[in-house]
């Protein structure tokens, strides 16, 4: 494997966003790119990352390899990179280590680190293609704010999408709270658009602590996409350049 990223910052932000949710992960490398899939310890949330080969320049992976990496170790090393550094990941065919090289585009500094790999026996889940009842695109910062505000009141949020809009509501010991967003197009600031595509109304309840955790990815993309269907996990997607993505799935709370 040899994969060169123009900005180390991308990998730094991705790992920073998921490191509190999942600890030891396989980075599955093949000629289409670098993928990661991992559940949190409680098996309530699933992280699915895909960094497509096109996100790297150049990208070369001659043989499929799984790099088992502890994310807190990876984060320690990534913190040694300047955000603007060029990052090259390298690994042999049957690697014991992954090699990270940081190059400054402005100076002649070149830093090199190896991280020891681990054998991780990780269950790989098949995620079915789903036609979601509701797909909501909204500013990532807005979603983060709603989750942070509501967790002050309650552990859970009900997300209800209807043709009127999408309503995030919660109730807790001190009282209730709700935020409703309607479809909204801002010609001058399209990054503030809220788009709700609905095939049928849907209402589901989710644990807010996971959603707040997912929102650590807000710095990766201006927009977040929420996809909901009855009785299936919520998909929270941050789209990255070159069709790469960071997706989180969250199992709903069911009952009553």
């Amino acid at each position: 494997l040899e994969a060169r990223l123009e900005q180390a910052n991308l990998l730094k932000k991705v790992v920073d966003a998921i490191k509190d949710l999942v600890q030891d992960c396989n980075f599955d490398c093949n000629d289409s790119g670098i993928a990661l899939q991992a559940m949190d310890n409680s098996h309530v949330a699933l992280v699915s990352m895909m960094l497509k080969a096109e996100s790297f320049s150049p990208f070369r992976c001659d043989r499929n390899i799984a790099l088992g990496i502890n994310l807190s170790s990876l984060m320690k090393v990534l913190r040694c990179a300047q955000n603007e550094d060029i990052l090259t990941l390298k690994a042999d065919d049957a690697p014991d280590v992954v090699n990270l090289v940081f190059e400054s585009s402005e100076s002649d500094r070149l830093s090199e680190y190896d991280i020891k790999l681990m054998d991780i026996d990780q269950e790989h889940l098949g995620i079915p293609e789903t036609e979601y009842s509701a797909t909501i695109s909204m500013p990532a910062a807005e979603f983060q704010r709603i989750c942070r505000d509501l967790i002050a009141l309650s552990e859970s949020v009900a997300i209800e999408a209807t043709k009127e809009g999408v309503k995030f509501s919660c109730s807790g010991d001190i009282g209730n709270g709700a935020v409703t967003l309607r479809s909204h197009t801002n010609v001058e600031k399209p990054e503030l658009n809220v788009d709700i595509a609905l095939s049928e109304p849907v209402a589901l309840t989710f644990s807010l602590k996971y959603l707040v955790n997912f929102c650590k990815a807000s710095g990766l993309s201006g927009t977040v996409k929420l996809c909901l269907s009855s009785e299936v996990p919520l998909l929270v997607e941050y789209t990255l350049a070159s069709n790469s993505y960071l997706r989180f799935y969250l199992a709903p709370k069911i009952g009553d």
């Binding site: 309530v44 098949g126 069911i254 009952g255």
Partner: peptide, 14 residues
């Protein structure tokens, strides 16, 4: 508030 479901109830092994 309902019971927290598990991801593996929805996504099978592959």
């Amino acid at each position: 508030e309902g019971t927290q479901a598990n991801i593996t109830q929805f996504f099978g092994g592959s």
